[in-house]
Write a protein that binds this DNA or RNA. Structure first.
Lengths: 343, 343
DNA sequence: TAACCCTTCCAAAGCGCTTTGATAATTTTT
DNA sequence: AAAAATTATCAAAGCGCTTTGGAAGGGTTA
């Protein structure tokens, strides 16, 4: 069922039917109702490609997911983020077009996306400190919003980010206030902007109390369970083991907890742990009393906000760029306690 | 840069340029090379919508992700599966169109997808035992492949599934061979076909040795860490605690391990655990010796195969339906050992 | 009654591509 | 050398929609 058939069925022109369905005023209420009714009865939906060709927009948003071929990591955060943006897109009638590409093809994928004009805008994920995608998007003239920030980017752009620095600074302060002095930092890959900023927060907190940094207490890698486990295990076996850990992901926190238990220690009394909690649905930390003390910021919520920002920008291209900085909550759970000197 | 501009630039007709770029034979090699060169120089890619409108196909595959609004769960398996299908789509020049919808809207989303003809085919996720999507897809005439199976569906359809029953039957046998008799089953939601089949495997193994089922040892729920923890904790506190657990996901297995450690027991000697391992990149169980004894089947690999099946079907609609049954490997790790009677 | 103005509808062009059916240009066959 | 076959190119139609620029029809006003 296409527009021509539908209009013949109704004894009206395509013009009138199109206007009736798209809410234009120059059609009487009576005909509009009749048209809508018949369209519904025949389960008519306009052909997406034809509509797009005529209007010049695709009503689709692009998400490019790079897979490094060394270790095909799919960030677990990704699912929840997508579910957040996806909900908004669905509500607003936009499609989500995803391209899974190798990091080598990434920039070309954006070029092609723009050249074929298959999307009206894109969301940039996991920015590096200096990210070539941002100037590229400007060059291509494609609306975009960055989830995160690129510290070294000088020109303005739209972004939404969690205040990673203040979150980790507060978390570190929290541990310091509990009396901990040896705090292990189990960070994500520090080429990623978020991880770099978290480290800055950790460093700032220590510095402001005049404490020295101990490089043996600072790790940076892909945030798996095993990484958390191995890092914590090694640190706990050292001569001056940390009495607390600050960790960048729930999954690695599980690993740290395992290392603590395996060492015959108790998390929350012997060793404290503070984690960053993206509030993932399958890795929930939400109990009566949360298992982990954590900086919490829902990545699903971030996805919804990013989507709204981008759609606003697409609908009103002249509107000013938006920047949103979210503060993570620091929620106290069972995994922290005062320094006991037991370790 | 569009086709008209490009052809003017070349002093050729649109026809010739189009044929040159699409590999048709009725154009000389000399002109073809010239056309391709100039197209590349000007970064020309044909407009996706115009091409789709002209050819009648979208070169896109739909994935509909339902979010139950009770608890906005995004299955962690999802990310790896998407990265698998996405890699194949990218290689074959297809887009991945994702719709995140509430379960209530799900069927209508498929209807709309078909009516607007925005995709050339769809992948069905997480089938129920009796799944209304399968007859609907037939009605809509949209090519589709199911990841999993629907036990109660009678007519043939394309699917790819892991042999969940034999996997859990082997796993149960493995535990029985080690001397365990009280085996806790921490299953997924049994309205899902895969979970139902896993349970069948567990039941079959017990029955074939003349053992009775103990309903207090069988749980079914969304597979979170806390679910694994709570279930194991309760079972271990009972009068006749299990000496082994069979669990449907790595995440819940983490929870079980935690409950075991917290009870002062050692996983792998006091209590054995076998899990299903989807080989997720961020939850890797791949060590020199795997942490968990597990039925392993890579969901990323499954995604790649599903995508290949679907694209084959789209390219040759008359070709017969394909059914693929994968066997999971049973890999021995550190989490299992002979029954000691210590529990 | 004529002139004018809304309201309601429509014919036709255009979006950027593919593809059909011809037409020139060249080569081969008779 | 003329006829036939092949090669290389093109003009134009069509995919299904939106949108521009009218044009009827009915009601008001002068």
């Amino acid at each position: 069922m296409n527009l021509r058939e539908l209009s013949q069925l109704l004894g009206l022109s395509q013009t009138t039917v199109s206007r009736a369905l798209n809410g234009y005023p120059e059609v009487s209420e009576a005909t509009r109702n009749r048209v809508q009714q018949v369209a519904r009865d025949h389960n008519y939906s306009p052909n997406a490609r034809a509509k797009g060709l005529a209007t010049g927009r695709s009503h689709a948003i692009g998400h490019v997911i790079p897979i490094s071929h060394r270790h095909e990591m799919v960030n677990p955060v990704f699912g929840d983020f997508i579910s957040g943006v996806g909900e908004v897109y669905a509500r607003e009638g936009y499609d989500l077009v995803m391209s899974v590409v190798t990091t080598a093809d990434e920039l070309n994928t954006y070029r092609t996306l723009a050249a074929r004009s298959s999307v009206d805008g894109v969301v940039l994920h996991a920015p590096l400190m200096e990210d070539p995608r941002i100037p590229l998007m400007r060059e291509l003239g494609l609306p975009f919003v960055v989830h995160g920030r690129a510290s070294h980017e000088e020109l303005p752009y739209s972004w939404l980010d969690v205040n990673n620095k203040s979150a980790f600074q507060r978390a570190t302060d929290f541990l310091l206030d509990l009396g901990h002095r040896q705090i292990g930092l189990i960070n994500g890959l520090e080429m990623q902007d978020f991880a770099f900023r978290r480290r800055e927060g950790y460093v700032a907190a220590l510095k402001s109390r005049g404490l020295d940094l101990d490089p043996t207490l600072m790790r940076s890698d892909e945030m798996t369970e095993v990484y958390g486990y191995e890092s914590a295990k090694e640190m706990l076996q050292s001569d001056a083991p940390p009495s607390a850990f600050l960790v960048a992901s729930m999954i690695s926190a599980y690993g740290i907890r395992r290392a603590i238990q395996e060492a015959g220690l108790v998390m929350g009394s012997d060793v404290s742990v503070v984690t960053f909690d993206d509030d993932l649905s399958y890795l929930s930390n939400r109990q009566d009393i949360p298992i982990f003390t954590a900086c919490r910021s829902s990545v699903r919520d971030a996805g919804m906000r990013v989507a709204e920002m981008l759609l606003r920008q697409i609908k009103a291209p002249q509107s000013p760029l938006e920047q949103t900085l979210l503060e993570a909550e620091l929620i106290a759970g069972r995994s922290t306690g005062p320094f006991t000197g037991q370790i």
